[in-house]
Design a protein around this nucleic acid. Structure first.
Lengths: 157, 157
DNA sequence: TTAATATTTTAGCCAAGGTTAACTTGTAGG
DNA sequence: CCTACAAGTTAACCTTGGCTAAAATATTAA
């Protein structure tokens, strides 16, 4: 490599947007991979909080049904959540959030709500907004969240 | 369970939005999991297309650097891409897209561009918009994409 | 209180997506 | 032409997040 005379000079070939420098480019993907790591944990914790609030109890059966996953999978993931001290429970009993878990659930819930309301304010149908929000919420930075929130408020007035 | 007299009646306890019915709720998560399956493949294919266009060549070193990942990882993923007939190449040589791969890259690129432009039109800074777009692009439905596109066009006028 | 049913856990399996270390192949320079 | 370095591959390993089947524990109803 390294600057041979017949190097392709991108600017002459491509319409507009060139590639960002490698290291900056890499950071984008790293950010996405990091998000993926906590994504599932956040979903669980958020769902547990919802169940506690709405049904008074968080049982793995319900989690399995709502996540569209087998009970065995829930068991395994809950074990991880307990190891991370996000969830507490006695064997064969229903689940509770630790302080740490509650904090995560609250943040997660708030982000989710902001994205969902934003999509609806944009004019996206309820059904689609719900699906998209679920996927998007873990990939929206604070900066963007602030802007979404402002946008939604303006539309509401 | 099942309607005991002292069942918690959610509506009295919670502020607004109750939980959606289980099966509908599950579909949201299923949709996200499905998106995750193709996500990485799309990113690779999109990046390969970019490299081909901007540098005339797609080499695994560059992919590794830009994805922030080891070369071994690239090798393995490329093997998968080849098995799926998205990419073709001879051992130790650089990579090409099949027709199928090109189609996927084109779609992916377009979605990415729509989301990125939308975020910028919203007022998100370039750096943040790039990161968020990378994460969001795989979770935005066609309906939302259309709305984003319309929004961006209106702002441009 | 005991038997049937429901729920939770455990064990064993699999694929994806990472890693490092060691090996192979390709390419430039002397 | 051959040697050094760069690039690509392979092997062996790890974790995550799914699954099914079987075992353990709770709950309900007779």
């Amino acid at each position: 490599m390294t600057d041979s005379p017949n190097d392709v000079t991108p600017d002459r070939l491509s319409k507009a947007d060139a590639l960002p420098p490698s290291d900056q480019h890499a950071q984008q993907y790293v950010a996405v991979r990091n998000a993926h790591e906590t994504e599932l944990l956040e979903d669980y914790v958020e769902l547990i909080a919802d169940l506690l609030q709405h049904q008074g109890e968080a049982r793995s059966t319900d989690i399995a049904a709502r996540m569209g996953v087998s009970q065995a999978t829930v068991s395994k993931t809950v074990a991880r959540l307990k190891a991370l001290e996000l969830v507490s429970s006695k064997p064969y009993r229903s689940l509770f959030l630790t302080k740490k878990g509650e904090a995560m659930a609250a943040m997660s819930h708030q982000r989710h709500a902001i994205v969902l309301k934003f999509l609806r304010a944009l004019g996206v149908s309820d059904r689609t907004a719900r699906i998209d929000a679920e996927g998007m919420e873990h990939h929206v930075s604070q900066e963007t969240l602030d802007i979404m929130q402002r946008f939604t408020r303006e539309r509401e007035r």
